[in-house]
Structure formats: C-alpha cells, structure tokens
Design a protein around this nucleic acid. Sequence first.
DNA 1: TGTTCCAAACGAACAGTGTTCGTGTCAAGT
DNA 2: ACTTGACACGAACACTGTTCGTTTGGAACA
Lengths: 252, 252
Amino acid sequence: MAEPQEKSAWPQPPRRRGRARQTQRRPARTLSRAAIVDAAIRVLDAEGLDALTMRRVAEELGTGPASLYAHVADKDEMVNTVLDRIFSEVTIPDPIDPKRWQEQLKELARSGRATFNRHRDVARASLGNIPTGEGALPGMNAMVGILLAGGVSPTVASLSVDILALYLTATAYEESLEAFPTDEEGSEQFHTELKSFFASLPADRFPHLVAMAEPLTSGDGDHRFEFGLDLLVRGIASTVNPAEARPKRSAH
Amino acid sequence: MAEPQEKSAWPQPPRRRGRARQTQRRPARTLSRAAIVDAAIRVLDAEGLDALTMRRVAEELGTGPASLYAHVADKDEMVNTVLDRIFSEVTIPDPIDPKRWQEQLKELARSGRATFNRHRDVARASLGNIPTGEGALPGMNAMVGILLAGGVSPTVASLSVDILALYLTATAYEESLEAFPTDEEGSEQFHTELKSFFASLPADRFPHLVAMAEPLTSGDGDHRFEFGLDLLVRGIASTVNPAEARPKRSAH
DNA sequence: TGTTCCAAACGAACAGTGTTCGTGTCAAGT
DNA sequence: ACTTGACACGAACACTGTTCGTTTGGAACA
C-alpha cells in the first residue's frame, strides 16, 4: 500500500554533497534499488505478475532473496516502485489545449491503457492503489489540468479523475486476464463456450441471456474500451455544457 | 498392476427399488459442499478475504485442510462458489418497468454494491471474473432486461452490462480497501496525509495537484459511487434519446 | 600502509500457503 | 456377516514472504 509519506522520502532532501566524486564506484556491490526494479520489470514482462516473487527477482540478479531486503522494505514496496516506474511511461498531452480537452482526456486514457497492456498483467497490482509516486504524478496532474481547462468544476474534476483511473485500471486488468489466461484454453474457445452456455440456459428463467448470447459474448477489447471511455467523457462534458452530451454518431 | 474387475460385465440385476427411502442419511459424515461454503462465508465476513484459507475454513469445521478436497476441487472453486452464493443476495427489480428503466438500473447497481459491502472485501475476489454461477445469472439477466426495456440496442446493452459490472466491482473493491485498511492507520488519517502530501508538492511541476489538494482527497464513498453511476446511466440513455443526457441538476 | 568499521550480501531457517498421497474408518449394500 | 467404497485425515511437499546471524569487502581514518 502506498502511503503518501514514502520512506524513500520524495521529494528528496538534498543528497550527501561531500563525496560527490564517486559516480559509479560499485565494482562488486552491484545490487541497488534501481537494479532490483529493473530485474523485477524484466521478470514481470517475461513471466507475468504471479512469477514476480522475491526469489525470482533475486535469481534474476544472481543472488538470494535476503539480499533484496537491504534495498527494499517489502515486496509491496518493490511492486509499488515497479508500478511507479511503469506509470512514468505514460505520454502526457502537451500543451493542454482547452478546445480539445475531451480528445486530450481520451488520449491520456488511451496511453494509460497501452502502458498497462505493455506490461502484461501488472494492472492487477495497481487495482485499488492510489499511486502517489513520482512517476504517476505527472499523469494525474495532467488529467486534472485537462479537466479544469475544459471548464469542469473542481468537485466534478476530482470525482472524474477517480473514476477515470478506476475505469482505466479495471479495464486493463480484465483485458490482461483474456490476453494471458491462467488455464490453458485460449480466450477464443472461452468466448464460444460462454456463448453456448448462455444459449443453453433455461429460456423461461433467463430469457434475455438466452436471446442475447451472441452480443453478450462477442466483445472486442478496443471497441469496448472506447465505448466506456466515450460514455464517461460525454457524461463529464455534460456537466459543463449539456448540449455536448449528444453522442457523435448514433450507436445503432 | 490393476485387476480388470469389470464386474458390471454381465447384465445388472434390476435395481432394488424398495430402498428409495433414505434421503439424507449422513449422521457422522457432516462435511458437505454447502457446509464448507457456509463456513467460508463465516470466515470471510468475520476476518476478511486474506483469512479465507483452506486451513482456516477447515478449522472452522473442526477438521484439517485435506478433508475439504473431497467436496471442492480447488480453493478457486470454493471462492467462486462463495461468490455465487453472495451474488444470489442481490435484490432484483420486479417487475421491470420500462418507464423507470434508468432508476431500476441504478437500484440494481446499488443493491449489488450493498451486497459486496456486506461481505467485507469479497469484491476483490470478484474482480475480472465473469460470474456464470446460478446465483449471479438472475442479476445479469435482469440488467440486460432493464436495458432492453429502456430501448437500448443489443450491442450497447451488452457493452453496458460489461461496464456496469466492472464499475460495480471495482468501486466496491476500492471502498473495501478504505473500510478495512491493511495497515493500522484509519482511512481518516490517510486522507488528511494524502491531502497535505499533494499540497506540499512542488507547485511548478504539479500545479493542479497542489491547487486541488482539498477536493481531490475529500471523497465521500456514496457520493462518488452515485456520481459515476449517474455518469454511466446518462451516457447509456443518451444512446437511446440524446435529450436525456442532460444532467438533472447542474453540478455546480 | 595498516587498521577499523559498517553497510551490504547472504545462508539458513521460520511460519504460512495450496495441494497431494496414502492410509484409515465407518456406514451402506449385498 | 462381509465386502466395498466414498469420505476423513495426518503427514508431507513445494512454494511463498520474511527475519536472524554471520560473513565480507571496500571506504575512512590513523
């Protein structure tokens, strides 16, 4: 859990200035916080979040798990540092253009989703954590800025940031479950099985599930994400100017 | 090696029909699937999802963990059965009233949230699982039915069900994190710390976070849930009749 | 240069997890 | 009365995160 006052004390107090000479003196002691995070991301990207254990990361560094605890307090702290590093990959619209605030909001959200998807099922680790690390703050700041630039009230902007982040993370997590299924049947087969399951239900008790077996199970990830994102952004926009709530194109 | 032992090789004698009497003869063997799920829910409600281990459930039943595996394949299956049982607690609007479809949709969502919150942090176990158990189907069927009754297209209805369920679960999970914090500082203190953290950030790099430290950290759970729910429902309604997208009351 | 010193590295172990194996046991069916 | 077989269960295995105590190697000081 990410406390606001991290023990890594960011913003940092001025570093030791006396021995500024040695830059990378570390011939034998190669372990460091950054190296651990690097190794962790390597393991995460290659084998997924479940494989991200202290032993696996230590092995990646050619040492034992106990050695990591000199640089990292917890597994929790390690994962949060990994998350923060990943958040820093999100590209931030710059400069903010008040005329295009809705589109910029969507661009930011899309970049967030893409960043999650680039790192396997890391979204699961992010669920329910309000990230307060250095890497996540620019994105959060930008999102608030875009909303304010669009004329959204501070109250609605705050609520919107919460909900957009929630939507982003939860969507990325769900998508990662389909992209990297735990049991060894592909998501293709899963969808067809689910469809025939719905279709075979007793029609007197679950008429709508039977009738809608096809559309209910034929979801394209990108399309669904855009649909929900559009729903949210239009809803937010409608608090500024109700006329903007109209969907651009009728959704059949 | 194994003896063939196909004693059913020759025609079976007609089954004894007389002894159809005994229905629930199980005096000493008290373990059963239902009893396990009951015990699991007891543990879950009292101590939370992290305490829901096979050993803890077995202890609750006065036995060892190995005994559970005669009635339950996995821990996963046990948890899913628990989830399904809990889903069956959701109250379903009946009958569906097309005139009130938006309100009924919200009522269903509120009942879902309340059901989650009634069982501590069980929402975490539900994240990303499309529930297909008997207990979850009525709610899902009802949600689809309400949407269709409101005139929503099958495509949009399917997407909406997905997103509403996602929102419901993710929100409940986030709320459970605040209601049952893992470290021992209350959520009250956490919010004030987070607020002063935002306020103390460098204003040149994160101007909006500094300026909005107050609203960003002063979220009421109920209010936030209703805000997002309203956003989504209005967005869905706007695909049917764009005029309905206007917020009922201007949000400041 | 020689000595001290201390944080980093690490081997081993602990407590806890899900799960399996083999054996016991007891009630039902023949 | 005897067989049978599903259920119960003790013990163990392979993991997990984490801690304790020791070792060690490079930097700081005399």
